[in-house]
Simulated scan of single mutants.
Amino acid sequence: MNPHTEDESADARAADTARLAGRPPARPFDEAADAEEQLLRLGVVRVKDEHFRVGPYRYTRLADARAEAERMRARERRP
């Protein structure tokens, strides 16, 4: 028989399962309070990327964006 009602969260059921298995309950993920610390603990690394937009295209390399910009400029100058 399940002692939990349908209104109880999955966290409560997981805590009971961990307790019965002799493990400490998992710490709930609180994104607003300590997301950065938890991400580091889990091995998730934040990476900031630069993107360059040229017309409808997006590039991660500046050289590619510049080459496209030059191609677009050359097309605009054609009669």
Rank of each mutant, 00 (worst) to 15 (best):
R19P: 07
Q38K: 06
Q38W: 07
A69H: 04
A65W: 07
Y59W: 06
F52W: 11
R19E: 04
A63H: 11
E68M: 05
G55P: 08
V45I: 11
A15Q: 04
E70G: 11
Q38F: 06
R78I: 00
E68L: 06
P25Q: 00
L42T: 08
R77M: 09
A35P: 00
R66G: 11
A69Y: 07
T17N: 05
D30M: 03
M1S: 15
H51Q: 15
N2F: 08
G55M: 05
E37R: 14
F29G: 01
R61M: 10
M1C: 10
E76C: 12
A74E: 05
Y59K: 13
Y59N: 13
L39R: 12
A63G: 13
G22W: 06
F52G: 01
E50I: 15
L39P: 02
R61L: 12
V44R: 01
M72Y: 10
R23N: 03
E37A: 15
E36L: 06
A18I: 10
L20D: 02
A65Q: 03
E6R: 00
Y57T: 15
A35D: 05
D34A: 03
E76G: 15
A32C: 01
R19L: 09
D30R: 03
D49I: 14
E6N: 01
R66A: 14
E76N: 14
R61G: 05
A18L: 03
A15G: 06
A15T: 10
R19I: 13
D16H: 01
A10W: 02
R46G: 04
P28M: 00
R13M: 09
A63F: 03
F52S: 11
V45W: 00
P56L: 03
A12N: 05
R46Y: 01
P79L: 08
R27G: 03
H4N: 13
A69Q: 10
